[in-house]
Design a protein around this nucleic acid. Structure first.
Length: 572
RNA sequence: GGCUAGGUAGCUCAGCUGGUUAGAGCACGUGACUCAUAAUCACGGGGUCGGGGGUUCGAGUCCCCCCCUCGCCA
């Protein structure tokens, strides 16, 4: 039994995420967590909301709420939706927690003690009306290049020219529209990533088994242009972790907070501490996952994220960990994903384009989405969601291949032998061939799951379902029962047991349907079928079962057309 | 413009260090079966592997040039 620490990139607090966000981190992380648990490993699966920063402040202001209250509310909303998708976090934390405040300040202090923090004085635009410094993207004005009147301080969206806020003509605050701006001097802390470049590069180079997507992005940032740059880790904001050097005040940094990208990954650790607190456990309980000097040396740590998050997880966060000089657990494997596109374009949170998590659950059960998203996960390249493909895959794979198999077996069994597992007959060569076939398929499935090859794992699982139909079709108990009912009983006994095994092995992908299948088989035996022949005898002769409701209703053309239309434009 | 990753059957994708007639699922066609959510099973048609050069006995798989898509950066 291994100990496996799993984290999913933490979603930003600002609004409900779309399916592209879900499939890029939380969902595959959940798949892996469920699989590891099913195989008997000790798992700690952590996620949280990423709550700090300007977007949260503005979103709160927009709905007229204090930012703390807004975040608390949105955290609950996201937590509930995650539960709706059956994301099996051991803890869903908050980056605004007291734990994260302390830990973030601790890391900053440790980095400073090791000479890895530099104080830099720089000029920034201050809005007198808003009484705050403005991040570049929150300054608007006329583009000096093309004349576009709503160019942002970081870039003109019209001509794509990169800008400096001071380049803008007639600059104004994007928050209030005020033109009462001035450039002020301000001091910030920088993490001296350049000093850690060699260490980081050696570490990345040692990760030869990581996905190309992960290492290529990391190496690009290490080597591109002037190489890895030092990074500002503080901001002039109110909403965030106050800058402190450990427990001590940081002279000159009063009123400033740490940058959201500094404190967010630290929340992985803090959330595990929150988990311990929530369960009334001592610090040792979470430290054994994170401190290699306190028991974490045998932990395997796996992170899941979309490709946009890779630089922070391969460089910035490791720089924080390494730079602290303390024995914190570094990530062992980073599974990264490309983007999921929506019907010919991109999912867009700002434009409300695509299907959002709450909407998805309002029209179909979680299993439908889980299956499609995971079996089409954007692993090797960007992939695309279309309603036609979704309808076809779900109907074929879930309703026809798996759902109908459960249906045909249980209904036939009930009609011929009643609602208990029949006792007659014994297995012949055909049954043995099926068991052999399933065993090799199952080993292939396990290998894919272990390697986090999500799409391939889905294909292997589906092949196992198909093998069941294949067997039934060849064995034809409906014919055999007329001449040799004993033999037909053996076939049905095997098929009923197969449903329970399918529930066990399918559970990571489709937990609700798996639970229904298990319940229908009148069992609660979720033991992994290491020995398939033995597992296929788990339901003994005479064991009661029931015929479940239709596991997966098909998506009709009408529904598909309706949804296609409904989600094409702006989110209502 | 620089860099990453891609461009393989109508669709979604596999093809490891180059090696027999290029694979899977879906869709399509034919047949079988009738237990089942008009489900299942079998067989079949279909691709000059983005384009052009080159290395090699032999390239989807290596090298060079070009075209296109996506993303990151400037």
């Amino acid at each position: 039994m291994a100990r496996i620490l799993i984290t999913s990139a933490i979603p930003y607090i600002n609004g409900i995420k779309h399916l592209g966000n879900l499939v890029g981190s939380q969902l595959p992380a959940d798949l892996y967590a469920r699989y590891c648990r099913a195989r008997g490993h000790e798992v700690m699966f952590i996620c949280a909301t990423d709550e700090h920063g300007t977007p949260a402040e503005l979103a709160a202001a927009k709905v007229g709420k204090p930012v703390e209250a807004y975040c608390a509310e949105m955290h609950e909303v996201q937590k509930e939706i995650a539960a709706g998708f059956r994301l099996s976090f051991d803890h869903f934390g908050r980056s605004s927690s007291a734990r994260n405040h302390r830990l973030t300040q601790h890391f900053a202090g440790a980095l400073a003690d090791n000479g890895l923090i530099e104080e830099v004085s720089e000029k920034q635009v201050f809005s007198i009306t808003d009484n705050r410094f403005l991040p570049d993207r929150y300054i608007e004005g006329t583009c000096p290049n093309c004349g576009y009147t709503r160019a942002r301080g970081d870039q003109c969206e019209e001509c794509t020219k990169q800008l400096d806020p001071t380049d803008l003509i007639n600059p104004r605050s994007a928050i209030s529209g005020s033109t009462d701006l001035e450039v002020r001097q301000t001091k910030h802390l920088y993490l001296r990533q350049r000093a850690l470049r060699g260490k980081l590069e050696a570490w990345i180079d040692s990760k030869t088994d990581w996905p190309i997507l992960t290492t290529s992005i990391a190496k690009k940032w290490l080597n591109d242009g002037d190489g890895l740059q030092d990074r500002g880790i503080t901001r002039d904001l109110h909403w965030g972790v106050p800058v402190k050097r450990g427990e001590a005040d940081w002279p000159g940094m009063e009123g400033k907070v740490f940058y959201v990208w500094f404190d967010a990954p630290i929340e992985y650790i803090a959330a595990t501490a929150e988990w311990a607190d929530a369960h009334g456990l001592p610090d040792a309980a979470w430290q054994r996952w994170w401190r290699t000097d306190l028991g974490a040396d045998d932990v395997r740590y796996v992170q899941f994220m979309g490709k946009d998050n890779v630089p922070f997880h391969t460089l910035s966060f490791p720089a924080t960990i390494m730079g602290s000089g303390e024995p914190w657990k570094l990530v062992d494997y980073i599974k990264s994903f490309n983007y999921l596109n929506y019907d010919g374009g991109q999912f867009s949170t700002s434009q409300g384009r695509g299907v959002f998590m709450d909407q998805a659950l309002s029209i179909l059960p979680a299993d439908y989405w889980r299956w499609w998203l995971l079996s089409h996960a954007p692993e090797s390249s960007d992939s695309e969601f279309t309603w036609e493909n979704f309808q076809a895959s779900v109907n074929k794979d879930l309703a026809d291949v798996l759902g109908n198999l459960v249906s045909r077996v249980t209904k036939f069994a009930r009609a011929k032998f009643g609602e208990t597992v029949p006792a007659g007959g014994s297995f012949g060569p055909r049954e043995q061939a099926l068991i052999d076939d399933l065993t090799s398929g199952l080993r292939a499935y396990e290998a894919c799951m272990q390697a986090m090859e999500v799409r391939k794992a889905a294909a292997e699982l589906r092949a196992l379902w198909v093998a069941g139909n294949e067997y039934l079709q060849n064995a034809a108990p409906w014919t055999v029962v007329k001449t040799d009912p004993e033999h037909a009983q053996a076939m049905v006994r095997l098929a009923l047991n197969l449903i329970r095994v399918y529930a066990v092995i399918s559970q990571p992908f489709i937990p609700d349907a798996a639970a229904s299948m298990m319940a229908a088989m009148g069992s609660d035996d979720w033991a992994w079928p290491d020995d398939l022949a033995a597992s296929l005898a788990a339901l003994p002769p005479g064991h009661a079962f029931s015929v479940p409701e239709v596991l997966f209703a098909k998506i009709t053309d009408e529904s598909r057309a309706d949804w296609q239309q409904r989600f094409s434009g702006i989110r209502a």
